[in-house]
């Protein structure tokens, strides 16, 4: 499965002299000339963008008709972003229908514990486990037309109907509730109320929040689009740079 596959040019370069330090700088030059991938941008800062799309995949690989975000891709990318001195901030873009609780919470926890400025933007939908991911950043935006569905964790498949089952689901749900309450302005009680609201969804309890409503409930910070999200990220980066410079002068 894990085929070792290399790009043609790199394979050719490496034959004969694999431990050549000078080669790396040449490769960098090639990258700039041929790929146009230069880290430093015109604005003098470099941001990376992480898109959370489709289903959040957990420990089981989902069939190929599902569009998925895989944690084995995302987690190392987040480590690289946090570790790379050239990257100043992260823009998180969400359009997700939810997915695996643990994978979603893992990504959300990683983002919330980053030291670099992070801004999220919910477009289309940020449903179910997408909610904790959306609030995990320093500041969050939602497009006016975007929606967020907040509903309880569901029982599916064969379930043994004993009180322990209910308790287990309740505890799993509590992890989501706690994370959202900790990272946004909504209280645990209010979030639970939204989860269990009746009369909103056709065949389930829960709430569908439109852009402005998500802000009114305190889950998301502001209604906005790409320009406002980038502007906010810029100002957060600027703030950190100022703090750093101020500290050095003293």
């Amino acid at each position: 499965m894990n085929q070792k596959i290399l790009f043609a040019k790199q394979t050719e370069n490496q034959t004969g002299n694999s431990n050549n330090a000078g080669q790396t700088s040449t490769e960098k030059m090639d990258n700039i000339k041929e790929m146009g991938t230069v880290e430093v941008q015109e604005k003098g800062r470099s941001i990376h963008c992480l898109t959370i799309i489709g289903q959040i995949e957990g420990h089981m690989v989902l069939p190929p008709q599902n569009k998925t975000t895989k944690y084995e891709h995302v987690l190392p990318q987040l480590v690289a972003i946090e570790d790379d001195k050239k990257i100043d901030g992260l823009l998180l873009i969400l359009n997700t229908v939810g997915g695996d609780v643990e994978a979603g919470l893992a990504i959300a926890e990683m983002i919330s514990s980053m030291s670099k400025p992070t801004v999220s933007l919910v477009l289309g939908g940020g449903h179910s486990i997408g909610v904790p991911m959306a609030v995990s950043t320093n500041y969050s935006f939602i497009a006016p037309s975007a929606t967020m569905t907040i509903h309880p964790l569901r029982l599916s498949g064969m379930i043994i109907g004993v009180p322990q089952t209910f308790e287990y689901f309740d505890r799993m749900q509590e992890r989501v509730v706690e994370f959202v309450a900790k990272n946004s302005k909504i209280s645990k009680d209010n979030f639970r109320k939204l989860m269990l609201k009746t009369g909103e969804l056709a065949n389930d309890v829960g709430t569908v929040l439109f852009g402005q409503e998500a802000v009114e409930h305190g889950i998301i910070d502001e209604v906005g689009g790409l320009a406002s999200a980038l502007k906010k990220l810029d100002s957060l980066i600027e703030q950190i740079k100022k703090d750093k410079d101020g500290g050095q002068e003293k």
Binding site: I5, V97, G99, D100, V101, S128, V176
Partner: peptide, 28 residues
């Protein structure tokens, strides 16, 4: 445990014949 607005059976059921081979590689 799945927390999604898509029903579980929709996630797992799919037509077998559309299963094209996909690989993940590193290019530059």
């Amino acid at each position: 445990m799945i927390y999604s607005i898509v029903p579980c059976d929709q996630l797992i059921n799919y037509p077998q014949d559309s299963n094209q081979e996909r690989i993940e590689v590193d290019i530059n």
